[in-house]
């Protein structure tokens, strides 16, 4: 039955893409959970990562730098960028109202957008070899190798971050800071170190995610539409839950796969609307997301 095959195919590729979304969403949640910053510039960081990767690796064909060196440079620049962003912008936001950090991230969004366009211009680019590409036949189903690789890398990174957050002292300190930054300070948690770690992880994840998505879709400023999708993923899952990220990523990727397959010929731009509407629906029914915790209100 071809119908069943199509559905299975859509689900499989949905799971693969969903894995990447989940990883990206996790980077967003980490700064929200440790520094209480709702970072709208997040998509732009992913784009920046992709463009940096393109600068080091170059277009397909002859790589500009050997791959290990390029990967090393990408990681170093992401870490550097994380420290820089934390130092220049978000350190001042500790203890400020949420609106301030929200607006700051909007300003950063505009700044990054403008800078990326000034440096690299609006043209879309193809990223050279990072992971093996090409179709992989599994019986009746076709998988893109780059999706599979990206999914695998995303999975490893996700597990790593979950381990960091749940099982290590640093993770504990970050979770404490999420609940109350001032009180966490009194417990000997260094607010500065915490905030630095959070931002480094955030931008590292954004970069990895950006490169993975760019491997599949090419490098362009349009990747920043990611931000909406990531927001949707995060909010469907619940802003304070890492497991929710994974769930949200899978639901949205599979959902938008199906709608774009069955509906996009009738309605222009339906696949981006689907994730948005799904998110609205979840928020209306469960304001704290699928996996979010409902807090007892203290008046």
């Amino acid at each position: 039955m071809p119908q069943i095959n199509t559905i299975v195919q859509l689900i499989i590729s949905g799971v693969l893409v969903g894995g990447i979304y989940s990883l990206i969403a996790m980077g967003f949640v980490i700064t929200y959970r440790s520094a209480r910053v709702f970072n709208l510039a997040y998509g732009q960081f992913a784009v920046l990562g992709a463009f940096l990767a393109w600068t080091f690796i170059g277009p397909p064909g002859s790589p500009r730098l050997p791959l290990p060196l390029a990967v090393f440079l990408i990681i170093v620049s992401a870490v550097g960028l994380g420290l820089l962003v934390e130092f220049l912008f978000f350190r001042r936001m500790i203890g400020r109202p949420l609106f301030a950090s929200f607006m700051l991230s909007l300003g950063l969004l505009a700044l990054l957008h403008g800078t990326i366009m000034l440096v690299w211009g609006p043209e879309s680019r193809v990223l050279g070899a990072t992971v093996p590409k090409g179709p992989l036949f599994l019986g009746k189903f076709v998988l893109a190798r780059e999706y599979l690789w990206s999914f695998g890398l995303a999975l490893v990174a996700t597990l790593g971050f979950v381990y960091l957050f749940r099982r290590t002292r640093i993770g504990l300190a970050m979770r404490a800071a999420y609940d109350n930054q001032v009180a966490a300070r009194c417990l000997g948690v260094s607010a500065r170190l915490n905030s630095q770690i959070a931002w480094v992880i955030c931008i590292l994840v954004a970069t990895i995610g950006g490169v993975l998505i760019a491997t599949v879709n090419g490098v362009s400023i349009g990747l920043s539409e990611l931000v909406l999708l990531v927001l949707a993923v995060v909010l469907v899952g619940g802003l304070d839950s890492l497991v929710g990220c994974v769930l949200g990523g899978l639901i949205l990727a599979i959902g938008s796969n199906f709608t774009s397959y069955y509906l996009s010929q009738y309605l222009v731009g339906v696949e981006s609307i689907v994730s948005v509407s799904l998110m609205l629906l979840v928020l209306l029914i469960r304001p704290d997301g699928l996996m979010g915790i409902k807090m007892i209100k203290r008046v």
């Binding site: 912008f89 001042r92 301030a100 607006m103 700051l104 909007l106 300003g107 950063l108 969004l109 505009a110 700044l111 990054l112 957008h113 403008g114 800078t115 366009m117 000034l118 609006p122």
Partner: peptide, 21 residues
């Protein structure tokens, strides 16, 4: 004209960041 527009983005961004900070 494109560069002017991108520059405007960056400068607006910086302005917002400076005021909020």
């Amino acid at each position: 004209s494109n560069l002017t527009i991108y520059m405007t983005y960056a400068i607006f961004g910086i302005a917002i960041i400076l005021f909020i900070s």
